[in-house]
Structures are given as structure tokens and as C-alpha cells.
């Protein structure tokens, strides 16, 4: 005689005769009542509007163009109702950061504390860190920075500034720093 601990398999085996037992057949009046109730609630022969729409929309000829239309609509409506990504303040900061990265790439020494750009940045640092519109501060510093650059650098700087401005504050969307 085994004295092992019972396993799930043994329990399932013992429970099977009951599991296999069929439910008693329901009485005839129950059957009739359920049939009548079910017939009253059934939409026989006339599929519901949703069934028709679902069948129509799930066909490849309709479903795929419909999906494309929904996606296009979502892409058009999304920015209008869910916002335009970063706020004006965040875009300003991103513009300022990009400008400083550019200046540091050109004149790493000048951008250090002792350098001309570094000193200029330090002078305006409090403005740059406390403003909600870093781009406007940078805009006002452009002439000062420009004077520190050679003519070709100045042209490249202006061009890069125009690109950054168009990126973060596109005129087409009526955005201004």
C-alpha cells in the first residue's frame, strides 16, 4: 500500500466519475419557456446594424482603405487635439542647447569660462537659466556672439540659427519664440 502524498493526477482521477456525470435533462416546460424567451430576444433573419457594419468593414476591399483613412485622420487630428509635442518653453530650451552645442563645437576654448563666448554666456547666464524663453535671450545675444565669430563662421551661425528656429518654431504653424 502506497503512502505517497496524493498528486493532482490522483485527485483528478478520483473526481472524474462526477465530472463525467451528465446534468439532468431539463423538464419540457423549462425547454419551452427558454425557447420562447430566446425566440423573443433573437434578431432572426435581420442582422443587427453592428453585424452589418462589422461584416462590411472587415472585408479587405473596405477594411484596408478604411484603416488607412482612420490612420490619416488620427495623424491629422492627433496634433490638433493632443498637443504639438514639446511646449514653447521646452522648444526654446532645445534651441538654446543646440546653439550652445554648435558654439562649443566651433570654439571650445572660447566657450570655456575664460573665453569670450564663455564670459558672454556667464554674463547672461542668470537670464538664460531663469527665462521661460531661452530662444528670445539667445536671439538678443546673436549680435554679440556674431561679433566674436569670423565672417564665414558668422554666416554659418546665422544659417544654423535659421534652421533651428524653423525646426522648433515653424512659421507654417504660426509659432514664435
Amino acid at each position: 500500500m502506497s503512502v505517497r502524498k496524493p498528486s493532482w493526477e490522483q485527485l483528478a482521477r478520483a473526481a472524474r466519475p462526477v465530472a463525467a456525470r451528465a446534468e439532468p435533462v431539463p423538464p419540457a416546460d423549462w425547454t419551452a419557456a427558454v425557447a420562447a424567451k430566446a425566440m423573443a430576444g433573437a434578431s432572426l433573419g435581420k442582422p443587427s446594424l453592428w453585424t452589418v457594419v462589422a461584416a462590411w468593414a472587415s472585408s479587405p476591399k473596405v477594411g484596408l482603405p478604411l484603416l488607412a483613412l482612420l490612420l490619416a485622420g488620427g495623424m491629422w487630428l492627433g496634433p490638433r487635439y493632443l498637443g504639438n509635442g514639446p511646449s514653447a518653453e521646452q522648444r526654446s530650451s532645445l534651441w538654446a542647447e543646440a546653439t550652445l552645442r554648435q558654439l562649443k563645437a566651433w570654439h571650445p576654448m572660447e566657450c570655456e569660462e575664460a573665453g569670450a563666448i564663455g564670459r558672454l554666456l556667464q554674463r547672461r547666464a542668470s537670464e538664460l537659466t531663469t527665462t521661460t524663453n531661452a530662444a528670445a535671450v539667445l536671439d538678443s545675444m546673436r549680435d554679440e556672439i556674431g561679433r566674436l565669430l569670423t565672417p564665414p563662421e558668422r554666416a554659418a551661425f546665422e544659417s544654423e540659427q535659421a534652421r533651428l528656429r524653423a525646426r522648433w518654431f515653424p512659421a507654417a504653424k504660426g509659432m514664435t519664440p
Binding site: A38, L44, P47
Partner: peptide, 16 residues
Amino acid sequence: DDLRQEIFMKVFARLD
């Protein structure tokens, strides 16, 4: 009984 009845209601409602 309730569950059986619910199943039959669903079967008939979705017959189409």
C-alpha cells in the same frame, strides 16, 4: 439553470 438559460439566449441572439 440561469447559466443554461443565458447560453441559449446568446445562441439564439447570435444565430445569424
